[in-house]
Amino acid sequence: MQQPVLSVERLNVSVQTADGWCPIVSDLSIEVAASETLCLVGESGCGKSLTALAIMRLLPRGARIDSGRILLGGADLAALDEPALRDRRGRDLAMIFQEPMTSLNPVMTIGEQITEGVQRHERVSSAAARTRALELFNRVRIPDPQRRLAAYPHQLSGGMRQRVMIAMALACRPKLLLADEPTTALDVTIQAQILEMMAELRAEIGTAVVFITHDLGVVAEIADRVAVLYAGKIVEQTDVVSLFDNSCHPYTRGLMRSIPRLSRQAGGAVVDRLTEIKGMVPAPTAVPTGCAFSPRCASATEQCAVEPFAEPLAPSHLVACWHPETAGLAAIPGGAR
């Protein structure tokens, strides 16, 4: 892999509970190169969003980074103070949020919301910032951009607002883009358009992308590499093809089996019965010692009471499991789609 743009080293994040600080993200390490998309995949509450907010250093009150380094452009974001972070946010790294309906300021025109970011980081006239916003609107394919600059968020559809969010995030050509489930709240057709457009823009600008999703269909569409999170730990990290063809961690394989698939039989297409992962995601305050997945795992043994290390099974294929299923699962035809 080429020199990474973002390199997160052993990041630990915890949140405040009634019983003190409870770890949510444990020893998370990821690297993303320019023009590369890393998908963070996992169930709700596994720490995906907190990881992204921690990288932005925008953790809400009651959440904190305990340890770890977040290296971006030669600086450790985890060690910077607030003014230095403000100079970088929006310029070196930007974020798109899940909810386009509430992520834009309702009383400001979308034009102003884009130009204010440009003018914050670059010494440009307001006319030049406006021209930049127009260019961006063309890039993200917002029709009639001239008129839309003066529009307010409530006058736009959800898909249009998410395009505005993307334009806003890319306004200063950031090195890193964090996208937290940016298409979850959108219709499927709009979702496909947005994903396609993001892939184009990523290639054009050369931005590294960390894309958070729980939707394996989206992963198949956009990811270069994938990190699977379970209870705040990365259990498997590999390229997208091996993930779908040859996932080794029992949890990842469980996820794969829970994708609905069609199989052709006499009389037409039939949906196979879904196999769900037995049991529940542990609450952050009650994560079992050792392998967090072991209580739900069919191949668990006594050895799993000791926490497994992430070990490379193949070059750039990390698995944290004592009993990885290396035999190779039958390839899933066509991935999730």
Binding site: R89, R91, F97, V107, M108, M165, M168
Partner: peptide, 28 residues
Amino acid sequence: SEDYIRTANAKGLTPARITIRHALSNAA
């Protein structure tokens, strides 16, 4: 505590601008 204030922070805007332009105009 609204989402758009987080968005404004993600743009790296100064606290003064966020408070006056983004927050106060919504509290008006």
